[in-house]
Design a protein around this nucleic acid. Sequence first.
DNA 1: ATGATTTGACCCTT
DNA 2: AAGGGTCAAATCAT
Length: 298
Amino acid sequence: MASSDSAGRDLPAARAAAAVNDLIEVREGAMRLKGMLQEQSSGFAELMDGILNKLSSALSALDTGCTAGASASGASDGVIRARAESSTGRTRKRSFSRRLERSSGKRVTDTLVDGHIWRKYGQKEIQNSTHPRSYYRCTHKSDQGCNAKRQVQICETHPIKYAVTYYGEHTCKAPSNTPMIIVPASGDRADNLVSFAPTLPQLLPATTQLSSSWCTSVDDVFSSSSDPFVQADELAVIVGSAGKTSSTVGSVPDYSGSGIGDMARGGTGSFASSPSSLGFVVGSLGSIVDDDFFQFDP
DNA sequence: ATGATTTGACCCTT
DNA sequence: AAGGGTCAAATCAT
């Protein structure tokens, strides 16, 4: 039903989505660069702030247009209702929707933590593939209607890495989806912003699996680089996740036997309910948020 | 008790 | 018809 008009808006929407993806990648690179430069000179950091500010503005502007189109197509997403009787004799109603979002590209990564919270909704053996594919959707789908999804599969050539394909845009208030840290260039506040960083390693030693899960930012995921530094924006990711999450914060496909799933299922990657420790981080940032360090565009 | 994951079935696309 | 994506009951974990 939406096929005819979707054909009409498909091209602009796709171009906008591609532009958003590109901008997101540029922004993440810029944030990383900012972190590096911040150690060198505050002048560079100022410049990077300006760049990030513009990028965030552009993303916000694009996002409103895109999400409007996406939600319009998502609402009438060819949802088909059907009744079926399972083999056990149960009668169940089913609503079925098909993905229309474009893939934002396949990434090879060594971690599944990308700053967002995912909920697994399926796993499937794939033809000509030794490893199953796992299907995740944003955990904020129910409460915020976020339609972001991802597919995760063990990399064929490098079994210790994952091939992750993302679909859709995060419309939830997840930290990596929001314009990050728009800091007025006054040194005090900027210092204040990162001043809590040294406290984090105490809480989450960077060498543990737990902290690598918590502290991995999107660029770590996307680049597969193993740079160990922890930047303020990464902390923002943690805080944002913690603040929004009431239960499980991470999930990994069940690749039992591969050894990779064990790390998550053993409890280091999946830190289901530790609200007290999360509360510490959130609490320590409460004043910062109140101070408008983190701008969440409505 | 609640929420996440597993898993078989269902349905769409090719 | 096959393959792949999603649903949802059952199961598991906390």
